[in-house]
Computed example of a mutant assay.
Amino acid sequence: MNLLFSISSVIAIVSTLMVITRKHPVHALLYLIVSFLAIAVVIYQLGAPFIAILELIIYAGAIMVLFIFTMMLLNLGKETIDQERKWLQPQTWTGPVLLSLILLVELIYLLSKSSSQEHAITGMDTKIVAQTLFGPYLILVELAALLLTAGIVGAAHIGQHKRRVSHRFLEEYNE
């Protein structure tokens, strides 16, 4: 168990460092997804499978789709076609795919090794989680949703402003 925990931890650290050092935002997002997957495996190994599933659903799923949608919204234009072709090159996907495959093999091994009673997801009642989130923490959940929405609107506004400024500059330059 310590070896698998160490492998997952190293993958989480390496992929997080790759997020920080990538120049292209899509590359950084790919490594961020791998980092979330590695953290979910670490959480699963610590004996909290329900939290690991929530990590996958909320962060690796919903939040990453939100980030990708925002990036697509900001990168509208003719130059993005060439940029998207560069992102589809195999060297873009090699690193995240290799790290994800290591995590997949590790997770399959953990699931086949563990007994059904050891890591039963039914140990945590989803009704209790829902009542906690939407009971005393309802305002915090709504504020988080509002903050994400404001971030997207702000990013879209900044992207539109940059596009308008560049079009004005080109029009003045051509005159």
Rank of each mutant, 00 (worst) to 15 (best):
M1S: 10
M1E: 08
S6C: 07
I7R: 14
S8A: 15
S9H: 09
I11P: 06
A12L: 13
V14I: 13
T16V: 06
L17T: 04
M18F: 07
V19Y: 00
I20W: 01
R22I: 00
R22Y: 00
H27W: 07
H27Q: 09
L30Y: 07
L32E: 02
F36C: 07
Y44T: 05
L46Q: 12
A48Q: 14
P49K: 04
P49C: 09
F50H: 08
I53T: 09
L54Y: 08
L56G: 03
I57C: 09
Y59K: 09
A60Q: 10
A60T: 03
A60H: 05
I63G: 02
V65D: 08
L66I: 12
I68W: 05
I68K: 05
F69N: 11
T70C: 08
M71K: 06
M71C: 06
M71H: 10
M72R: 09
L73W: 01
L74D: 05
L74F: 00
L74N: 08
D82A: 10
L88W: 04
P90V: 04
T92C: 06
W93H: 10
P96W: 00
V97K: 02
L101W: 06
I102G: 04
I102E: 05
V105E: 11
I108C: 10
Y109A: 04
Y109P: 01
L110A: 06
K113A: 11
S114E: 10
S115G: 15
E118I: 13
A120P: 01
A120Q: 13
M124A: 13
M124V: 15
T126R: 07
I128K: 09
I128H: 08
Q131S: 13
L133N: 03
P136D: 13
L138T: 09
L140W: 09
V141K: 12
V141M: 15
A144H: 00
A145T: 11
L146M: 14
T149S: 09
G151S: 12
A156E: 02
Q160R: 06
K162W: 13
K162M: 12
R164E: 07
V165A: 14
V165E: 15
V165P: 00
S166I: 12
R168W: 14
R168M: 15
F169E: 15
Y173W: 13
E175G: 07
